[in-house]
Amino acid sequence: MFACSSVVICCAMICYPLGCLDPENFRDFKLVEKRQLSHNVAEFKFALPTPTSVLGLPIGQHISCRGQDAAGEEVIKPYTPTTLDSDLGHFELVIKMYPQGRMSHHFREMKVGDYLSVKGPKGRFKYQPGQVRAFGMIAGGSGITPMFQVTRAILENPEDNTKVHLIYANVTYDDILLKEELDSMAKNYPGRFKIYYVLNQPPEVWNGGVGFVSKEMIQAHCPAPAADIQVLRCGPPPMNKAMAAHLDDLGYTKEMQFQF
């Protein structure tokens, strides 16, 4: 085990405590709570060394998690916590577990008291408040987690006036991750956060989008192309490819797009 540094780095009169992550070496964190959210989705809460420790993950970045698949072979996969460094003493992961998923097997087998090996931070995206006027976000399935992290950071910062327009696509209603939290943010920040759900197989009563995310949906629910906006996307590879083509056709330049 290890202890997080209590050293504080000060820059431009803002002080940041060093976190518990190591970009070069895996560190182990204890699972203290596992909550089943649906038949194949669970929320995992991991303790940090002290109640005031922070994970130390920059907004928009992710961690690498190491485990074992069903054959006992090592597997490493990236995940984005749904918590921020304002959530002291712990971090949380919302994991969708697929039947044949190698890392899904590891999370399915995890019990309270077990340890997860984590390394980070990782990722090319680094968010700074005010870097754009507005974000468009297009997420599919578990691709919601980086969008959720960035949106939370924006909305919980009273000094950040960035607006967020999220399109979130899934197959069925039950597949929607973090819906309660997303709906709560939309209700609490109506002028700053808008969300549009899209389902491929919607229930009989449904007022969201139907089918796959289309160019028309993007036009209606994302900010128009401009130098001070950016569209973030994260989903299964076929969806990412289709969304990139839609955005290109709609006039969003490469600089206006980012794929997690």
Rank of each mutant, 00 (worst) to 15 (best):
C4V: 12
V7P: 08
C11V: 12
M13Q: 13
Y16P: 01
G19A: 09
E24N: 15
N25Y: 13
F26L: 08
F26N: 05
D28R: 12
E33Y: 05
H39N: 14
A42G: 06
T52A: 11
V54M: 03
L55V: 07
L55E: 04
G56P: 00
P58Y: 07
G60D: 00
Q61N: 11
I63V: 15
S64P: 01
A70G: 03
T82D: 06
L84R: 03
L84E: 11
S86Y: 03
L93T: 00
M103N: 05
S104G: 04
H105A: 10
D114W: 01
D114L: 03
D114A: 08
V118R: 03
K122W: 13
K122N: 15
K126M: 13
A134G: 09
G136R: 04
M137C: 12
M137T: 05
G143I: 08
F148R: 04
V164T: 07
H165V: 05
Y168F: 15
A169K: 04
E181G: 03
L182N: 02
D183S: 09
D183P: 09
S184H: 04
A186N: 10
K187Y: 06
N188H: 12
G191N: 14
V198P: 01
N200T: 15
Q201M: 14
E204V: 02
E204H: 03
V205S: 15
W206K: 00
W206V: 06
N207R: 12
V210S: 09
K215H: 11
I218F: 07
A224S: 12
D228H: 03
P236L: 14
P238T: 11
A242C: 10
A245H: 01
H246K: 03
L247G: 09
L250I: 09
K254N: 09
M256H: 02
F260M: 14
F260W: 15
F260A: 08
